[in-house]
Nucleic acid binder design. Structure first.
Lengths: 261, 261
DNA sequence: CACCGTACTGCGCGTTGTGCGCAAAAATCG
DNA sequence: CGATTTTTGCGCACAACGCGCAGTACGGTG
């Protein structure tokens, strides 16, 4: 293979990200190759997600907050966004809150970017990325083993860090939830960590969109404390909510604008 | 029927910013107008700076808020990349390595993405992001307080996590380094953490491009251990390297292809 | 050293998106 | 109601694109 291929592609990405925009003709002249070759490079780099093509060139792909969020949140974007808005409104000035991993809680972090005088501790990469640019929010990462499926941290380091802090509120996500068994996750590491998180917090919120109510996709369970708040969206069937209310769970159903119904 | 023209254009912007990408054909079908009309809309919106055009559509535009990090990585990119390549070659199978925060060490993480049977612990967001997609690399985050300037974690949580692990190698970055005083950083939190990191590792490497040799930009210093390795690029003056060699430091100068000179 | 497989490059061709001018339709205003 | 402005649809020339083909450099193998 011609030696400079990989180097040229990396250089293209670098040029695009630094100057913002690069034309095929310009790149062709810079590296002394034909436009065809540049086009192939751009096609390859685009499919690799490194940059975006424009008519006649390419531009840097910038992780647009809303766009990347949308991508992660997937189908239930409206629901998760509404739930996040309501949850963000519960957080008062000067508080210390704990944020779980997961896309719904990531949406909450997105809403909290503008907060001030707030301390956020988290086990989620998504939360870290959302708050990396929030100058006025103090962020503590609990650390731990990176779990790629959920983009969060679990394990002994996270548990040890948790034992050194307490919180005004914890906002949890879940793969499934039932009134009797609590939170359902893929691994016991996750459920154990979530149980610990509930014990270290004064108020416990579970943020799940309606489709997750009553779901039992896995077989690891985390028991919920005596008092907690279930936050879901308007798509939730009353019959799905009844068991929670019967067990004394505070249930909040959120409209599309983020207000409680 | 120009009734909803303005409304349609606003909707286009909204669609582009929420879904990240919108094609001409898709938009044409959505609003039931011809592709020509959509193209005119996009041309108008582009010149107004509301979005960016791509081949066959448009995407959300974003002001570059995080350009600072990319820009920093852009400085001395060749040097950092070469240093990272050499450093990656030092890591053997089955090892456990510790990676500092910073752009040069981030470049090392980039090189390690393809590794297998490797455990990486880190205090750097950049490293986490680089390795988030590396399926075969086990990643441990040490946690701590997020320090935005360096995109890394410092403080008690990081130090506590560090005391529970040891490493085959540690790869450090620095804002400046001298033969007599060691590593120079902006805060004592950082230098204290780096000192701890050197104590927990069998082999210590400092990755700095030539411009940082002898620099003293701040007034917090971390002392280096008895034996350590300075890795820099070919732009380093022999006179800048002499003091390190005189102090018994192992000095490695790397060529642009990542091989030691 | 000859051989072969892989990966990349350059070139030509058909396809596709794009910009522009023009005429018709809709909305605004006197 | 008629004039003006804005917007829309359509056709055309042009530029960019994707794809297949042939040629070439690099690395491994007998």
């Amino acid at each position: 293979m011609p030696r400079g291929t990989q180097a040229r592609r990396e250089a293209i990405v670098r040029l695009a990200t630094t100057s913002g925009l690069a034309s095929v003709e310009e790149l062709s002249a810079t590296f002394d190759v034909t436009p065809s070759t540049i086009r192939r490079d751009l096609a390859q780099l685009e499919s690799a997600g490194e940059l975006a093509r424009t008519y006649g060139g390419a531009m840097a792909i910038v992780a647009h907050p809303e766009a990347s969020l949308r991508q992660r949140l997937g189908e239930a974007f409206e629901a998760k966004s509404a739930i996040a808005k309501w949850a963000a409104a519960q957080v008062g000035a000067g508080e210390t809150v704990l944020l779980d991993a997961g896309s719904t809680v990531g949406a909450l972090a997105h809403e909290l970017r503008g907060a001030r005088d707030l301390t956020v501790a988290t086990t989620g990469m998504t939360v870290l990325e959302e708050l990396a640019g929030a100058e006025r929010v103090h962020v503590e990462c609990l650390g731990g083993t990176l779990r790629r499926l959920s983009a969060g941290f679990v394990g002994p380091l996270a548990e040890a860090a948790l034992s050194r802090m307490t919180f005004d509120r914890v906002f949890l996500g879940a793969d499934g939830v039932t009134a009797d068994d609590g939170i359902c996750e893929a691994s016991l590491q996750q459920t154990r960590l979530k149980e610990l998180m509930t014990r270290r917090s004064d108020a416990v919120y579970l943020l799940v969109h309606a489709a997750k109510l009553g779901r039992r996709p896995f077989h690891a369970w985390a028991r919920m404390p005596e008092r907690w708040t279930l936050v879901t969206d308007a798509a939730a069937e009353p019959s799905a909510l009844a068991p929670f209310r019967a067990n004394g769970v505070q249930v909040v159903v959120v409209g599309t604008d983020g207000s409680a119904i």
